[in-house]
Structures are given as structure tokens and as C-alpha cells.
Design a protein around this nucleic acid. Structure first.
Length: 794
DNA sequence: GCACCTCGAGTTCC
DNA sequence: CTCGAGGTGC
């Protein structure tokens, strides 16, 4: 049966595309699409050719592996061809069943079990390095020739360059080696070396390497071996080709051990696994350590361990039936930018987001990726319609890595930040020296209102369970809620009405009686959750208000030092500035928030609605050590009135009244320079400024008067220590562990530095472990943490 | 004035 | 988790 025209056309198209990628990858060392996409194209072509064998031509890319070597190096014929392995990928649509998810691996094992008539055969298993495959020829124990893999039959003679790799033995150890030995392995660039290289190249303004594999390939193809010698290349051996006048062991794993004896580096991750379950267990084990390995891998390789069994299985075309490469889900994929939209955050910050054609990356479907800010878009030059490479690396959040410029549609235009907020229409502006654009709409912008409510209800703030994004959207859109204070006025009927309208809008069918009961129950729960939130802590309440620059930590600082909302909301910036970690900027932001009439009425509305931060306590006694008239004076924007002279003035007069009474002549007598006295007098001449100083003084004294004379609590066991948490703990959540450590007096911060007292590392801890090692910080595991908490009665 | 620490804010998917 | 920027100590 002749192939249909569509198949003919598609096959031709695929061949052209694959050849182009081959050329870019193998000859130019400059791939333009991720490997996963290349693999997919080849598989599609293979599928078409399998269905329509008449379409197979000798020139088809499926009929050879790799590309013809470029000029510059002599061609070498491998004594035994270098194999290519069949690839097994995960089926992302399969359920939890391993045999369905790794169907190709299961089939591979089953074929072997059937052909050999045995169960759970032994496999030699190893990580699949993402480097450059090479073949090394040793005669009488000496390295005589090395070649790239090329198309598997012939490669390029890169002997001189390979000699520069220190991991590669030029002379074999021991004496029991065959007269002629071909060793196969992978040249690669360790991740750390790659990063160091690029950091240096960046500093020197030289060209960067795209990734470690490209770095290795480019380095090996240098005409001048002296250049290669400077590149940080390494090598692992993984199999043997031709052997003349010598014996090898009976198994692959024993052969690897022999290679090690002869002086070849062999990956420490190699192992022996039995049957399908053993293979999958190994796959998972290596996968979980993927980021921690010092080299890039793109999967693992399974080889039937016994050579006699390998011989029974034989080959299909050029791929062995006794080995398979099990690939990890791709970390990089390419897709199309459908649109670039902007999102408005709680603070009005404008974040551009790329809407993407859905694509599978590392096991999940990605449809959005942040583009951070205007500068980032300009750097990448992302345009609507572009093909982009999306990555989901060690972290979870997808990012756009680069644009595939060759595929840019002809009329794509550079992206431009809109002038107005897409939600409220207010002007967008970018402040001097800031990366972010902001919507100037404030709380008249629906997006900012919604985000403010979402933040207020969030777990770390007021913790109103059940008040998710969808309902906040509906509550604000239908006018049930304008500000966070309105939440506490909502009734059962409001919730039911809101739900009905939301369902109407979404086109959901009218509710049955039974659904009505469920809805009532839902509304009751929500009402109860809102009611519960009335009793909260001052720190949570302050955090929930969403004061710019005030996050969880600063809210805790305010709550701890000042103690009562009444004081916090009335305290001028000059006083707030006396608190640790609160500087001019943050202090102004807090004072400005509470001075703004709209915010005042919201806060008052919350209090009137019965919201009561519960654990109010007097201001911290230590305030007396950091806050006095001197510190207040030293913050005045008056020239020649510094910290020292401010202290002298304060000491001479004791009170602000006395100081004001004395006037400039008295001040000079108290140690202020004539110029300073004149400046101060001039500043005080403005009645508004004079008034604000008097008010600040009153507030400060009120605060100090309320503070107990001395600390009443004993020293906490971990007082003054900074702890850091990383990884996942089995027995408790991170928040819980943080709270328990804080209860013992420790400060829990997010990053490791030399000031850190200890790092608690849970499962799959990441880069913070390295930081701890670098700074010589002690590392505790979960058991040690539990023991510590126990010993302090936690 | 600079280097180093922290904190705040924003982000994706299930 | 990362980036940007505020706070602090040298």
C-alpha cells in the first residue's frame, strides 16, 4: 500500500528539520532546540517510516546516527561500531502504575525475560552522562588513538586533544591488559567547572558556554590542543569495544571493575539491579540525586549484565536489544508565546507574564511563565509569537531561558509595557532606579483590592480558611466587599447570594435542594472561619494589613517591641526608627500607612467589627536603652546636629520643653555649634515641624512610660542565635519548626551566612547545605533537632 | 562608603 | 527560590 500524501509530506518535512538540527548540534556545536524536541521529531519520523516502509530512504536521518564530521580532523573508523541505545521516556498521561508509566522499560525487561526464559535478570546500571561519547584505543597498554563517536561507524581523530584530559590514563596500570583494547566512555565538563568557567568568561567579557555538554563538545573540537588543555574536562569509562589477545570477565559490571583497576575513572553511581522493580528503584534513586551530582545526566542506562545473555538478545539494526537508556523528563522544552500579559500585585507592582502554548516540562504542564520585569523582557527580547525554550530546573518555577530567534515569525514586534493598568486604567509608572513598574490606582484598582484581601486572609496572616482566590474574586466583583473590614460584615445570605451569582456567571446549572443544603453548610463554615480570625495575634494582624515594606518579620518586630496596636498606629517614624532592623524607609512607610485617612478608617472598621489582636502586652523594657530624647533629636533633618551633639543637648536639658525654652544661645552653651544652633532654630521656626517634633516627643514618652522598668523573663536557651531551616522535615512542617525554635529564643532566617549558628537540614536539602559547609556552620538533622527541642521541654 | 546580611514580594502547579 | 533593595556594621 502506498503511503498517503500527507505522510510523504510530513516525512520530508521532518527529515529536513532533523538534518538542520543535526548540523547545528554536531557540526556547529550550537543547538537551537532542546534535546527533548529533537528526540520527539526523530520518533515521529521513525513512527511514520515504521508504518510506511516504502518511505524509508538511505538518506533518511533515521538511517544513520549523528552527522558527518566537519573538516579539520582526520576520520577514524571504529574497529567495532559505537552503539546507539533505544530511549525510554515516561508516559506523563499514565497513572500511578509504574509499569504503565515506564511502559517502554517494562517491555524491554519482558522481552529479555521471554527470550532468556528467566525472571528478574541482572542489569548493570549507570547514570547516563550528558557529555560527548568517545572511543579510546590502547595498544600494549598505551593510549594510541582517540576518536569521537561520529555516526557510530566513523568519528574524528581527536587524540591530541584527549591526551590533555588528566582523568584519562595515557598508560594502563597493572599488566593483565589485552594487547589491543578499545574503551568507550564519555568526556564531560563537571558542573562546578562549567560555572567557574562562565563566571571567569563573563568577567573577562568572553563568550559563554551554553551548557556543560556544549562546553565539552566545543573544547574537544579545538584545532589547537593547548586550548583544549585549558578547558576543565573530565572523563568516565563505561564499556569496552574491541579486545585482542586478552580476556574480559563474564559480566559488564565485572568489566567496569576491571577498567577501574586499569586506571580508568568509572562513575561511582554504577550498580547492579535485578528485574523491572530493581531498575525503577535505581531510576528513582539517581533521579532524586540528580541535582546533587557533580555532572549533568539526562537519564540512566540499563545493560544486561551477563555477556552470554547479551549475545542471545542480539541487535535490531544498530541498537542492542540488551540495553536501553531510560531518560528523565526533559528539564527544557520549547513552546510558543501566545501572549504577554501584565499582572498587578498587592503593592501595584506590574509583572509581565508569558502565556504559553501548554507544554510538558519535567512532568508538569506549563502554561505560564513569569518574565519578572521590563528589563528581563528586553534582555531576552521575547515577543508575542516567538518560540521560546522553557526550563524547570532545581527550583519548581518555570522560566523562559531564551528565544529561538531562527523561528521568529516575520512580523513579531518588540514588546512594550502598556501605559495604563489593564484592570483599573490608571497610569503605570516606573520609579527612578527601580526595576518595577507600578499601577498608581492604589485601592481604587480592583486588582490591588483583591490582592490585599487575599493577603489578609492568607495562612500566615489572618488564616481565614476557605476564602480562596475564586470567592475573593466574586465578593469584590459583585460589590459585597470593598475593603478587608467589609469581610466581617458579611452574612450567611450574602455568601449564598454571592455563590449564586458566581455560578450564574460561570453558567453552572441551577442548584437542587440537596446542593442548597451543601451550599448553606459551606457558607456557615466560611462565616465561622472569618469569626475565628477575629482573635489573632498583633504580629499577624500587622502583617495582614499589608503595610508596604512590612512582612512577617518586621510585623513581629513591631509586635514584640511596641506590644499594642494603639501605640503602633500612633507612633511617628522618628520613634519607629529606634527599633532594630527598622530604618528610615520602613519607618516612614509604616507611619505614612497609619496617617492615611483611608487606612485609618479600615483599621478602625476592623476594630469596630470585633477584630482583636489578643496578646497585647507592654512595650519591651529594652526600648529604654535605644530610645530617648537624644535619638529623637539626632534624626531631625538639621545640618550640623549629629548624634553626639544631639545627645549632649538632651542630657543638658532633660526634656524637650526645657530645650525649646532655652533657645539658640543656650544651645551653644550646651555644646552645639553656632551654625547647628542656627539651623535648629530655623527648622523649628516652621510651626508644622515644631508641632511634629512635640508630638513625636509625647508619643515617645508615652511609649517609654508604658514599658516596664526591667526585663521580667529569664534568658531563653537559644537567645541571640540565628538558625536556618532547609529541606523537608518528616515530623513537622517548616512553620512549626520555626515557631518552636523561636519559642526557645532563636531567630530563624532564610539564608545561611557566617553569622548562622546552625542549619537544620531535612530531606532533599538543597544549596543551603553547601553554604553551611562553606561558612563552617554546624548542620543538624531532624533527629538532632527533635532531641534539642525535647531537652528544652518542647 | 562599602560589604554583607536579611527581609519583602512575587511566582507556578496540583 | 530568586531578585532587589533596605539596614547595619566595619
Amino acid at each position: 500500500m502506498a503511503a498517503p500524501a500527507t505522510a510523504v509530506a510530513r516525512a520530508a518535512e521532518l527529515r529536513a528539520t532533523i538534518e538542520e538540527h543535526n548540523h547545528r548540534y554536531h557540526v556547529l556545536d550550537a543547538p537551537s532546540v532542546p534535546d527533548a524536541e529533537y528526540d520527539r521529531l526523530v520518533r515521529e519520523l521513525e513512527a511514520i517510516e515504521a508504518e510506511h516502509p516504502d518511505l524509508v530512504t538511505p538518506e533518511s536521518p533515521t538511517q544513520r546516527v549523528g552527522a558527518r564530521p566537519d573538516s579539520g580532523f582526520a576520520t577514524v573508523r571504529h574497529a567495532l561500531p559505537m552503539l546507539s541505545l533505544a530511549n525510554a521516556f515516561e508516559d506523563p498521561d499514565a497513572g500511578d502504575d509504574d509499569r504503565a508509566r515506564y511502559r517502554e522499560v517494562a517491555d524491554f525487561v519482558r522481552r529479555i525475560e521471554e527470550a532468556l526464559d528467566l525472571r528478574d535478570p541482572a542489569f548493570s546500571v549507570e547514570p547516563k552522562l550528558d557529555g560527548l561519547a568517545i572511543s579510546l584505543r590502547y595498544e600494549d597498554g598505551r593510549f594510541v588513538q582517540g576518536a569521537t563517536r561520529g555516526d557510530g561507524e566513523t568519528g574524528e581523530d581527536v587524540t591530541a586533544n584527549l591526551r590533555t584530559i588528566r582523568a584519562l590514563p595515557l598508560k594502563l596500570r597493572g599488566s593483565d591488559w589485552p594487547r589491543v583494547l578499545e574503551v568507550r566512555g564519555e568526556v564531560y565538563m563537571p558542573k562546578a567547572a562549567f560555572e567557574a568557567w562562565n563566571a571567569a568568561a563573563l568577567a573577562a567579557g568572553e563568550r559563554l558556554m551554553a551548557n556543560p555538554r556544549n562546553g565539552a563538545a566545543g573544547s574537544l573540537r579545538q584545532i589547537d590542543p593547548a586550548v583544549t588543555a585549558r578547558r576543565p574536562l573530565a572523563f568516565f569509562a563505561y564499556s569496552v569495544g574491541l579486545v585482542e589477545r586478552g580476556e574480559l570477565p563474564d559480566t559488564h559490571s565485572a568489566t567496569l571493575a576491571r577498567l577501574r583497576d586499569w586506571g580508568f575513572p568509572v562513575s561511582a553511581e554504577t550498580d547492579v539491579a535485578r528485574g523491572f522493580d530493581g531498575l525503577v528503584a535505581y531510576f528513582r534513586r539517581i533521579g532524586s540525586r540528580r541535582d546533587a551530582l557533580p555532572f549533568d545526566i539526562d537519564g540512566v542506562v540499563y545493560k544486561l549484565d551477563r555477556f552470554d545473555q547479551q549475545r542471545v538478545m542480539g541487535f535490531v539494526s544498530r541498537a542492542p536489544r540488551w540495553a536501553i537508556a531510560h531518560k528523565f523528563p526533559a528539564l527544557e522544552e520549547s513552546t510558543t508565546v501566545l501572549d504577554i500579559e501584565v499582572q498587578i500585585g498587592r503593592t501595584g507592582a506590574v509583572t509581565p507574564v508569558a502565556r504559553l502554548a501548554p507544554v510538558q516540562v519535567a512532568g508538569v504542564t506549563v502554561t505560564n511563565a513569569t518574565l519578572h520585569n521590563e528589563d528581563q523582557i528586553a534582555r531576552l527580547d521575547v515577543r508575542v509569537g516567538d518560540s521560546v525554550v522553557v526550563r524547570r530546573a532545581g527550583d519548581v518555577i518555570p522560566e523562559v531561558v531564551r528565544v529561538v530567534v531562527e523561528r521568529r515569525p516575520p512580523h513579531a514586534v518588540p514588546w512594550r509595557m502598556p501605559g495604563q493598568c489593564p484592570v483599573c486604567g490608571a497610569q503605570l509608572q516606573r520609579e527612578e532606579g527601580q526595576a518595577a513598574w507600578r499601577c498608581t490606582g492604589g485601592l481604587s484598582c480592583a486588582a490591588q483590592r483583591k490582592e490585599a484581601i487575599r493577603h489578609f486572609a492568607s495562612r500566615r496572616a489572618m488564616d481565614i480558611e476557605g476564602l480562596g482566590e475564586r470567592f475573593i474574586e466574586a465578593l469584590t466583583d459583585f460589590g459585597f466587599v470593598e475593603t478587608i473590614a467589609d469581610l466581617y460584615r458579611l452574612t450567611l445570605d450574602d455568601f449564598l447570594a454571592m455563590k449564586r451569582r458566581a455560578e450564574e456567571r460561570e453558567g453552572v446549572v441551577p442548584e437542587t435542594v440537596k446542593q442548597g443544603k451543601i451550599a448553606t453548610r459551606w457558607a456557615e463554615n466560611l462565616l465561622e472561619a472569618i469569626d475565628r480570625s477575629r482573635r489573632t495575634t498583633l504580629a499577624r494582624f500587622l502583617f495582614a494589613l499589608g503595610i508596604p515594606q512590612v512582612g512577617e518579620t518586621t510585623a513581629k518586630t513591631l509586635a514584640h517591641w511596641i506590644g499594642r496596636l494603639e501605640y503602633v498606629r500612633r507612633m511617628p517614624a522618628a520613634v519607629l526608627r529606634a527599633l532594630p532592623d527598622i530604618g528610615a524607609e520602613v519607618a516612614e512607610s509604616i507611619a505614612a500607612f497609619f496617617a492615611q485617612p483611608g487606612n485609618q478608617s479600615v483599621v478602625q472598621g476592623l476594630l469596630d467589627a470585633g477584630v482583636a489582636p489578643a496578646d497585647e502586652h507592654p512595650p519591651a523594657p529594652e526600648l529604654r536603652d535605644r530610645l530617648d530624647l537624644g535619638t529623637l533629636l539626632s534624626q531631625l533633618p538639621v545640618d550640623k546636629l549629629g548624634g553626639k551633639s544631639a545627645q549632649r543637648l538632651a542630657q543638658s536639658y532633660g526634656t524637650l520643653e526645657a530645650l525649646l525654652q532655652a533657645g539658640p544661645t543656650g544651645w551653644t552653651g550646651a555644646g552645639l555649634s553656632a551654625q547647628g544652633a542656627a539651623n535648629l532654630e530655623q527648622w523649628l521656626a516652621d510651626p508644622l515641624q515644631r508641632q511634629s517634633l512635640l508630638q513625636a516627643d509625647v508619643s515617645m514618652r508615652e511609649l517609654l512610660d508604658a514599658a516596664p522598668a526591667q526585663a521580667e523573663r529569664g534568658a531563653a536557651p537559644l537567645h541571640g542565635q540565628t538558625w536556618v531551616l532547609t529541606g523537608t522535615l518528616a515530623s513537622m512542617g517548616r512553620d512549626e519548626a520555626k515557631a518552636k525554635l523561636e519559642a526557645l529564643g532563636a531567630k530563624v532566617s532564610g539564608s545561611v551566612s557566617k553569622k548562622t549558628h546552625a542549619l537544620v537540614a531535612g530531606e532533599s536539602a538543597g544549596s543551603k547545605l553547601d553554604d553551611a559547609r562553606k561558612h563552617g556552620v554546624q548542620v543538624l538533622d531532624e533527629a538532632a533537632l527533635l532531641a534539642l527541642l525535647q531537652s528544652h521541654g518542647g
